[in-house]
């Protein structure tokens, strides 16, 4: 059985728990063991980045150092923000040995720069390469828009596996899950990110534009890999519905949930029952 390091990150034990459940579920189907980094800490997300440039590197540095000392050479970070922070730190350390030296002193842990960080799209691509599609039993037949948002598309040295202006890293997986990938213009637009509570108006405006376009091209659902995008498009859709800014509910699924459904898993076990916008009807009849 192949083993992969696992960094769930904070949001995956809270609001983004469906991503954790569904990632673990498809890894199990594919026969990949996810080994959680012991005693991992928060990557600092945009809060550390906004207020303290040293802390913004020191927190991910401790995670990388822990992974290395625990013998994990490849680590999956399903949360797009964690991925961007961890990989961004890794890239900066490679570029600047001086920064690495400073961080070893600050964090008081050695790190030789050996850890490779994977995002959810890269993880899914590796599962497909190992034959995950052979385990698919359920024909979904849905019309999907693939939504990458910012942190699964941008960062020249961070999202090295995809094109920033025309990301395609989810498309193959959605197709083998028996769905159609619709072309649209919002695949890498921003949903408002971490401003859900502190500048809600901007999240509502930006998320509405994304939902509007998804509906206009005829999508049955939006598929994403990012817990912030999910929360903004799913939870904040309630507010948009209440204010009649969108005409009807549009389900938002994680890529890993879609693949779990294709593999015949129960919607509830993947976390579909925990979304704010009901999505379980997508597989009714097909189950």
């Amino acid at each position: 059985m192949k083993t992969l390091g696992y960094y769930p990150g904070c949001s995956l034990s809270g609001g983004g728990i469906e991503l954790d459940l569904s990632v673990r579920a498809i890894a199990k189907v594919a026969g990949v063991e996810l080994r959680e980094i012991e005693d991992w800490n928060c990557c600092g997300a945009s809060a550390a980045h906004s207020l303290d440039h040293s802390l913004a590197v020191a927190l991910p540095f401790r995670v990388l150092a822990l992974a290395e000392s625990q013998g994990l050479s490849e680590v999956l970070a399903p949360c797009a923000a964690c991925f961007s922070r961890l990989k961004g730190t890794q890239v900066r350390l490679t570029r600047s040995p001086e920064l690495g030296q400073r961080m070893q002193e600050l964090v008081e842990r050695p790190y030789n720069g050996t850890v490779r960080i994977l995002n959810i799209n890269e993880f899914v691509a590796s599962l497909l390469a190992e034959g995950l599609a052979g385990k698919f039993t359920r024909k979904l037949g849905l019309k999907v828009v693939a939504y990458y948002g910012c942190l699964l598309s941008r960062g020249e040295d961070i999202v090295t596996s995809d094109d920033a202006e025309d990301p395609q890293g989810m498309a193959a997986a959605i197709r083998v899950a028996g769905c159609e990938v619709l072309p649209w213009n919002s695949s890498n637009e921003c949903c408002g990110g971490g401003f859900s509570m502190s500048k809600t108006g901007s999240v509502l405006d930006l998320s509405q534009a994304i939902l509007d376009e998804a509906r206009a091209v005829g999508a049955d659902l939006v598929v994403t890999g990012c817990p912030m995008c999910h929360s903004n498009l799913d939870m904040r859709q309630l507010e948009l519905l209440k204010r009649r800014r969108v005409p009807g509910a549009l389900p938002i699924l994680y890529l890993s949930e879609l693949l779990g459904l294709a593999a015949g898993l129960e919607p509830g076990a993947l976390g579909l029952g925990r979304h704010f916008i009901e999505s379980r009807q997508l597989v009714r009849g097909g189950a």
Partner: peptide, 11 residues
């Protein structure tokens, strides 16, 4: 304070 860190400008 309103920069959301979307990386578009740098890209």
């Amino acid at each position: 304070w309103y920069c959301v860190g979307c990386l578009t400008c740098a890209q």
